[in-house]
Design a protein around this nucleic acid. Sequence first.
DNA 1: CTGGGGACGGGGCCC
DNA 2: TGGGCCCCGTCCCCA
Length: 500
Amino acid sequence: MANCMVFHTQITSIMEVLANAAVAEICKLVDDDYAVFRLEMSQSQKENTALRRKLQLLELKVSRERAERTMRERVPGSRPSSVKILDRYRGMARGHLTGGHSSFVKPAGRNRWRDDQSITVDEGSGTSTKDVIVIEPADAETAGPRVKLEKAEGQEDPRHSRNIQTGAVGVSPIATEDSTPAPPRTQRSITEVSGMPNAVFKSETDKETLTHRLLHTGSDSERLGPLGCPPAPGSEYFPVFHQSQVHSRGDGDGDTLDTGGDDPSCSYTTEMDPGNMLLSLETQTDLSRGDWNRYSSSVYSEGCLDKKGEVIVVDEVDGDVPLTWNADQTHLGGHSQGRDFLDKESLETNPNVATHSPLHAFRDRNPVSTSMGSSNSHSRVLFNQLLNSKDQRAQAQGGGGTSGNSKEKPFLCMFCNKGFSCLQKVEIHQRVHTGVKPFSCTQCHMRFAQAGNLKIHQRVHTGVKPFSCTQCHMHFSHSSSLKRHQRIHTGVKSFSCPPV
DNA sequence: CTGGGGACGGGGCCC
DNA sequence: TGGGCCCCGTCCCCA
């Protein structure tokens, strides 16, 4: 009995010691994490403070310049271009862009540079997807109360976008604009340049700058052009190709190239799918930027966004950072063909397309992309993202890669390095990556990369269902659908359809 | 469970 | 005979 007591006491003491040790360990972990967290917090606060200071400096500078300019001009009715733009916004603001998120608006009088105008930008929304512009127009007195130009997520206003596009040329750096993501499926509007002040004044050497530069309305060398890329809800960007070219449709005009062997209703064109084409709000010309623009036009002129709303906004960021490929490019980056393809074949001029890359959209997915500095590398990173997403599916379906294929497949996809038995197969396969869909339905605007798929698709219009179940009345347009259906009779399900 | 699109492999035909 | 081209069947996936 005494032994039991002693044993019990020992056990208790041991458990106590263990418990204490565990508690100490936990406390230590918590303390460590807390210290790290505090450190990060303080750093962020420092950054915010610095940015805020820079913002204020810029506001002062701008207001001073503005005052000087106004003093110089002194012409009634004539305003600097930026003011004209702002006036344009004012009209829109009356209609659509007011209301909501007023908490982001600072008092209008704060950043006054003239008593007839003020612009207030939200300083504290470095990570916010909502930028707020408060504009007090020159005729604010007649226009009524101060106009708040606000644009929040989900508020889409193509008119707004258009106006911003047209007006962006002369936008002064302070004329900040906000951006709104297009809904994935509508794909019809986009993007304004967002002038998130935090972004504007970020250090250019700061990695984070890359994630904000698309919001930057700075000098020509740094400004991203008329378009910005809006954060989609959840701080995700939809990849977008901006395409402003006019495309001929394949149904009946002279641009149609009949393949002859295909279904008569199949048009072989190189056009861009209007359905898939992002509406380019304006001609987004910026000759200073480029490679991806060119590429996106020459190769990615279509299919750059799939029906799931996969949109790529490719941004051109100046710089000369060496090209870097995704580290996880097991089947793309490692293959020189892909680079060559991008480097010499595709990067031809297309001044009509301006592209924007929301680097931070991919940063989360691909840390390497954050180190991208050059337009080429940025574009490629984004491009890789697209390729990856498609490759993954392709690999899932086809096995991918040359390894493991017993048959000789000497023709390699330049994008994913997958091997094929003949050249045509590769060409067809590469449409997966390029998005080229030469076969368009004349009865709808669907486009297909393969003629056979178009042919099958057209059964939708003709109503032809050549595959009928022998055991029931069902008919199917897809053979696979019939096959799947017949499993009901033969396999998994035990019930059977009575013979017709 | 069906409808329908994407993608791939295989086979036939032609040069 | 081999390559290019076309068609078809099939699988997978998503809505």
